[in-house]
Design a protein around this nucleic acid. Structure first.
Lengths: 199, 199
DNA sequence: AAGGTATTTGACACGATGTCAAAAACATGA
DNA sequence: TCATGTTTTTGACATCGTGTCAAATACCTT
C-alpha cells in the first residue's frame, strides 16, 4: 500500500469551510484541492465525488453542532434554555466574515429533485436527520419545562414551531443580514411559546 | 431592425418554470433555450446573462404572487385571513410534481457572498423586497385585526414572526416533504398569534 | 429596391466534473 | 537487501456549462 499524503480530517475541515461559505454548487473541487494542498484527483480517489466529500464533511459538522445544541438545551430554566438555543442558532449562521449563513438550510435548498446536478437523497436524509434530532432536543426541553410548570402546551407541535422559526431565521438572515431583527424575532417567539406577552 | 423570433414573455415563463424546478445554478441556458425553442445566444443577446434572465422572470413571479397574497390577506376575519395566507404559502411550494418548493427561499440560499458564481446583490434585493412587502401586508392585516379586537399584541413583531414561520415552512418542506406537518405548524402558529391555545 | 440595424448563429475560450491509465511510493515477504 | 504488489498520485481526456464575438441574416425604413 502507498500511504496517503494528506490528512483526511484536514481535508474535511477545509472542504466544509468552503462548502459553508460558497455552497456545494458554488465550490469546485479545484478550490478545495488548492486550499488543502492536494491534487484534485486525489480527492476523487479518496472520496469518490464532490457530493460524497460534502456528506463526509457535513456529518462532522452535524455531530459537533448537535452536541452544542444538546449542551444549551440540557439544563436551566426553560426560558434560559430556549433563549440560549436561539442565541446559538443565530450565532452559528452569523459566524464568519462575511457571515456564512446556515449550512443545513443552504444544503436543503440545493437539493435536486431529479438527480444529476445538485445534492441527492442521501444529503436530504442527513439534513433531515439533524433537523429531527434538534427538534427532539427542543421537545425534551419543553416536556421537562411542562413538568416544572414552566410551559403549558403540547411539546411536540411547539418544538416543531420553534425549529421552524429557526429555519426561517436562517432565511431572513440571507435576505436582510439584520442581526438585531433576528434577535427580536427570536425573543418574541420565546415569549409567545412561554405565553408571556412582552409589554 | 430585425424583429425577435421569440416571444419575450413565453421565454420568461419557460425560464422561470425551470429555475423554479431546478434552481438557478441547476438550470443551464441550454435547457431553457431548448425548451423555449430558441438559440442560446439569442438569450444572451436579449437578457445579457443567466442572472439577468432569472431576475426578469422572478419579477414577474413576485408581482403575481404578491397580488394573490394581497387578495387573501385583504378581507375577512383575521383568523380566516391568516389561515388563508398560510394555505396559499404552502400550496405555492407544494405545487408541481415533484413539488417545486419556494423559489424565493431557494434563491436566497443561492446567493453568493463574493460575486462570481451565484446570484448577486440585485437578486438579494428582489428577494428581500418580496419578503418585505409580504411582511407589510401581514402587518396591515394584524393592525386591522387589532382595531377590531381580533388581535392583541404588536403587529410589527408579530408580522415578522409569521413571515419567519412561512420561510421556515419552506425549509421543512424540502427536508421532509410532509404536507400535513406543514399545515399542523401553520395552524399552531395562527393559534399562538391569536392567543388561543388549541385543546 | 437599397441600406441600416438588431437579431441570429456558430466558433471560441475558459473552467468545472468525473474517468482512466500510467507513474510513483510505500509495505511486505523472500 | 531486493522484488513484488497494492494503493495513491498525477496528468490527459471527454463532456458540459457560461459568456464573448464576429459574421451572416432578415426585417423595417426610406
Amino acid at each position: 500500500m502507498r500511504p496517503r499524503e494528506f490528512d483526511h480530517d484536514d481535508v474535511l475541515r477545509v472542504a466544509f469551510e468552503q462548502f459553508w461559505r460558497r455552497g456545494v454548487r458554488g465550490t469546485s473541487l479545484s478550490d478545495i484541492a488548492r486550499e488543502a494542498g492536494v491534487q484534485r484527483g486525489s480527492l476523487y480517489n479518496a472520496f469518490g465525488s464532490k457530493e460524497a466529500l460534502f456528506l463526509a464533511a457535513y456529518e462532522r459538522y452535524a455531530g459537533d453542532y448537535l452536541s452544542s445544541v444538546q449542551k444549551v438545551l440540557g439544563s436551566g430554566p426553560l426560558r434560559k434554555r430556549l433563549t440560549a438555543f436561539f442565541d446559538l442558532t443565530i450565532k452559528n449562521f452569523r459566524s464568519g466574515s462575511p457571515p456564512r449563513g446556515c449550512p443545513t438550510t443552504r444544503g436543503l435548498m440545493e437539493l435536486a429533485s431529479d438527480d444529476g446536478e445538485g445534492l441527492d437523497e442521501d444529503a436530504r436524509r442527513a439534513f433531515a436527520d439533524l433537523v429531527s434530532r434538534i427538534t427532539g432536543l427542543v421537545q425534551d426541553a419543553l416536556s421537562e419545562g411542562a413538568q416544572r410548570g414552566e410551559f403549558n402546551g403540547a411539546p411536540e407541535v411547539a418544538a416543531l414551531h420553534i425549529v421552524t422559526v429557526t429555519r426561517g431565521l436562517a432565511v431572513l438572515e440571507r435576505a436582510f443580514g439584520d442581526e438585531p431583527q433576528l434577535r427580536k424575532i427570536a425573543a418574541h417567539t420565546v415569549d409567545l411559546v412561554l405565553n408571556e406577552k412582552r409589554r
